[in-house]
């Protein structure tokens, strides 16, 4: 085993992809000479040259458009958007161009673009630098959405995202960059579209990703001390979502709690709850519970932001309330 951080895993995945495939290249603001605002591409320009690890001006629309164009001509670009919130600046390129290209051309071309974005609250970056924005893109068929919640997944899913022939939005959680884990010396790609049962249990299914997955695991520890065995599932890929794995779990536990670091409306959590209510109605003892952030922007002040993010206690309380039935 070797010890790797989430940040190093993402860097390693890009390095390995660059080494394995000459059509892969990276582009983004300050990713080359400076090694990235989050230092996720540090050293890659030195290793692969400035033709394959390219700095850009502050021009998000031009970045994503250039990635799309290059992909049409056979390249496999990996574009960094830094803070995920900046996707708003190039929303058209992502939602109207990138997502629809293949479909509108009846499959004449594929667009294997990977876009890396840093999600997440908890560090006091304020309303425009703290969002988890995967839900903005949930309603855009043609995109794949990946949100790794562990070091190993970060590596494996990024390799698969880059190798995938479709556009992938790859959300990193910025509060997880320093998370360390023991990983096998030979990291391997992990297929997109498959959830991971992080922890097995028979009493309740908790589905959560990224920072919320970590909180769900903590909650499961606390609940086990009270004799409740929670199963924690990390979807890993948000689109396409692995409903089968969640359904299989719910069929056993008969209870579902979904936790997400964003507001409820139009979210993957809400979609999952609706789907399970329809498809697993017979298995469910109780209405599924969706734990989301409030319907407000992310506030700055520490106490407010902490209250905004769903916490371990919120998860425990929800599960214990179910248990009273």
């Amino acid at each position: 085993m070797s010890v790797l951080t989430y940040r190093e895993a993402i860097k390693q995945a890009q390095a390995d992809a660059l080494a394995a495939d000459p059509t892969v290249f990276l582009l983004g603001e300050d990713i080359a000479a400076a090694g990235g605002a989050f230092k996720v591409t540090d050293g890659l320009m030195d290793a692969f040259g400035s033709d394959r690890v390219m700095d850009t001006p502050i021009s998000e629309q031009a970045i994503i458009g250039a990635a799309i164009g290059a992909a049409l001509k056979g390249a496999r670009p990996v574009a960094e958007l830094m803070f995920a919130d900046f996707a708003g600046v190039c929303f058209d390129q992502i939602a109207n161009q990138l997502a629809k290209y293949r479909y509108m051309t009846a499959g004449q071309v594929s667009v294997p673009v990977t876009i890396r974005l840093a999600n997440g609250a908890g560090q006091g970056f304020g309303s425009q630098h703290s969002q988890s924005v995967e839900n903005w893109f949930l309603n855009v068929p043609g995109l794949k959405i990946v949100a790794p919640g562990s070091v190993e997944d970060a590596y494996g899913l990024l390799r698969s995202s880059i190798a995938d022939d479709d556009p992938v939005l790859f959300f990193e959680h910025k509060a997880m960059y320093n998370v360390k884990a023991d990983v096998p010396p030979e990291l391997v790609p992990i297929p997109l579209g498959r959830a991971h049962v992080v922890r097995s249990g028979d009493d309740v299914t908790i589905v959560a990703s990224q920072a919320m997955r970590r909180r769900a695991e903590e909650a499961a520890d606390k609940l086990s001390a009270q004799g409740i065995a929670a199963e924690v599932i990390d979807p890993r890929t948000i689109l396409p979502f692995d409903y089968e794995s969640v359904a299989a779990s719910v069929t056993r536990t008969n209870r579902l709690v979904v936790v997400q670091e964003s507001s409820a409306a139009g979210s993957w959590g809400a979609t999952l709850v609706a789907r399970m209510a329809a498809e697993c109605f017979e298995s469910l003892d109780l209405a599924p519970v969706l734990i989301s952030a409030p319907d407000t922007p992310v506030p700055y002040a520490g106490a407010l932001e902490a209250a905004w993010i769903p916490g371990v206690d919120d998860i425990c309380t929800a599960v214990l309330a179910m248990d009273r039935y």
């Binding site: 502050i58 919130d85 970056f125 304020g126 425009q128 506030p299 700055y300 407010l304």
Partner: peptide, 25 residues
């Protein structure tokens, strides 16, 4: 801004300072 904005988002509409913006442009 009552502590909800922070360092990157100072607004004082009363003096005509309609905001500091954290998204470039």
């Amino acid at each position: 801004c009552g502590g909800k904005g922070g360092s990157m988002h100072l607004t004082d509409a009363g003096v005509g300072a309609y905001g500091s913006f954290a998204i470039v442009g």
